[in-house]
Write a protein that binds this DNA or RNA. Structure first.
Lengths: 391, 391
DNA sequence: CTCAGTTACGAAGGAGTCCATCATTATTAG
DNA sequence: CTAATAATGATGGACTCCTTCGTAACTGAG
């Protein structure tokens, strides 16, 4: 008997809604005087005062000194206490384990990186995760008790309980119950998500896709993957397998990289991980063999990209991943391939976030999680949260 | 300066929320006594009474005679006045124009069909639309004034303003401003949507996909198309071109039908539109040539289906359209093709709604539109609606 | 330095909504 | 006809929000 949500309700519920409304007005904004909060929440001035006082009592909001220099009595200013809690984001890759800690507004306060190798044992990799987070906390004078949410990004498919269903990039990673293993280390929610999806999220929040609600993030590198933003939110799919267009043989995504690796111009003895970069660089200078190899590579890339774009009809396609540094070489041919088949051609842009994009996306996902807890319109009490304990 | 929504607000806003909560409890349910409404809305009994009285005054709710046969004072019962407004759905196809009128709960009260031909001039087709709707209204003793929303479904791409961007099935249909042309005929919102999408919606509301929030609807027939339900809602895409995977040459969707048409077993002189049905029927009896033709057809169908499924990872794929009557023949080979590539295999089901599915979907879309107007949490006044005028 | 002008603060009174409680009423079972 | 049952209707109290008005603090001109 899952009743439809109460949604309306008590007087106290109204107060709660107004408090959330005030938080929403204050989040990520400059310190605001009461009158500004009032106009943004639609409340009257006295009511706003009462709400803000309550939020100050709970530790959600703090007062800052008034701004001088204007005529009239100076207005008291308030701001969201973004430092009253913190979020951690982790990126577990084959070669690196990155971590970052941010405040509740998503501003990064510390960041660390640990080098690992693809064959690093699982236990060591997990230990590296803990060291990376501990390092961030130490750098910012925090403890795990200050963390409200931890988000882990990793390669591979992750089910909704935080288990790695399948990962090709890290040995023995498949089947690992990441949320379970790391959940014990932190006294808060620990969420696990696919890395490409988190990167996609970061692009819509602080990257080139800011403001777009329908975005396809195309991860191009030694492996290819996609992250989908639909209606402004991460799309996971029913079985957490959304965006796996590369499984379709017709896309040839798994073998596409060979067009770059096997290019004749690559000097003998180049390490395999550098070959693609070499060819892309050569193509930029106009080397005919390199250009031809890139064209063949993009031919393959474009099939899966077009399938994704035709299915979803996004506003924007963002190129990310290791090869996105060579976007100037890749974008024009990709654009012409897509234009040939797309009814509605999306914009194409290259990511500018760099290697931290997954960690940033993890932080953004944690912030979203907080928002969901706070603003879920149809849930019961939403306000207390850890704060009541930490103040 | 689009302010973030007020979301909280006034006392009257709280009353409004509670009124909506009561409507939600009453919608589509049996007549309910006050105590049941109270427990579903979370309100106290006296408050519920007040809210329901107000809703009766506005015409949203009506009282029905108490149910006898139980001990104690009989409880007054209330129900949503689903007949206080009506919704119209229209399906404009190449061969038929269908219309239906339903009450606010989506129960069909009248339905009509007009035969047209692919080469019927645009003006005549539009006239048929008006006759079809007028017929429904006449059958149920209504006028256009009783309509709260009209939804038109049609083949082709439809932009968000209700213009047909492109349609291959109906000549001179491309570029037509359907919403503009038909909007003048009705004193209410007129929405236009792609027919496959509406069929998909109908499946999730009253068909085999009821209860699923991630659904791919595969329209198979002389033309192929898809309708996507993501997170329980129709996905249109940024440029209204979502689901057009058939544009990708690798899917060969446009030529797939020839495998059925050109099958050697089709008797000389069979009209083209019956050839496919003949082959599918023959395949059911085990005719080797027919089975082989169907296999080849499904080979082509499966590529686009797999691309859509891999991109979205739905819970369920519904086969609809003319050929879905032959689902027993088509499903097994399609299933094996998908299982070969899908990481997470969705369920496969055949539609059971039949030819009215687009009209039903149009009605459901109209009901959704009403819901959005009513329950949009973040909008200002939501309650008045046409009722205040019609009571 | 003083005073007018401006802007924000704070308190008081009023209105609307919700809740808990209790006496009353209508029906069925025996 | 009486007892038991279950819903109704009315009263008073609590809470939140709004409007209004007098007061406080700061700027800038004379």
């Amino acid at each position: 008997m899952s009743n439809p949500p109460p949604s309306g309700g008590d007087l106290s519920r109204l107060r709660q809604l107004n408090a959330l409304s005030a938080i929403r007005a204050l989040r990520g904004a400059e310190p605001l005087p009461l009158s500004a909060i009032a106009s943004r929440t639609g409340l009257s001035r006295p009511s706003t005062k009462e709400v803000v006082d309550e939020l100050m009592g709970l530790g959600w909001v703090e007062e800052v000194p008034p701004a001088p220099g204007s005529v009239g009595r100076p207005a008291r200013r308030y701001r969201f206490r973004s430092g009253s809690g913190h979020l951690a984001g982790v990126d577990i890759g084959a070669h690196n384990v990155r971590a970052a800690v941010a405040d509740l507004d998503g501003n990064i306060v510390a960041e660390t990186r640990q080098a690992v190798r693809p064959d690093t044992p699982v236990a060591d990799r997990l230990a590296a995760v803990e060291r990376a987070v501990a390092g961030c906390l130490a750098m910012s004078g925090l403890t795990t008790g200050n963390l409200w949410t931890v988000v882990i990004g990793t390669t591979g498919l992750v089910d909704r309980d935080g288990r790695v269903i399948f990962s090709a990039a890290i040995p023995n990673w498949s089947g690992l119950d990441l949320a379970g293993l790391l959940g014990g280390e932190f006294p808060c929610d620990v969420l696990v998500e696919n890395d490409s999806r988190l990167a996609a999220l970061a692009e819509t929040r602080r990257g080139v896709a800011r403001g777009s609600r329908e975005v396809v993030f195309l991860h191009i590198g030694r492996r290819m993957g996609t992250g989908l933003i639909i209606d402004g939110r991460l799309h996971r799919g029913f079985g957490a397998a959304a965006g796996e267009i590369g499984m379709l043989p017709e896309t040839r995504w798994k073998s596409a990289i060979t067009h770059l690796h096997d290019c004749a111009i690559v000097p003998e003895g180049t390490p395999p991980e550098d070959a693609a970069g070499y060819v892309l660089a050569a193509a930029r200078t106009g080397d005919p063999a390199a250009v031809a190899a890139v064209e063949r590579y993009v031919d393959e890339l474009a099939v899966g990209a077009a399938a994704t774009v035709l299915t979803l009809d996004p506003e924007l396609v963002v190129l990310g991943g290791g090869f996105s540094r060579s976007a100037d070489v890749l974008l024009p041919p990709l654009r012409s391939r897509l234009e040939a088949v797309c009814l509605h051609m999306p914009e194409l842009r290259a990511s500018t976030l760099g290697d931290e994009c997954v960690v940033l996306g993890a932080i953004d996902y944690a912030a979203d999680h907080l928002d969901r807890q706070l603003f879920a319109a149809d849930t019961g009490p939403a306000l207390p949260l850890p704060l009541s304990a930490t103040r």
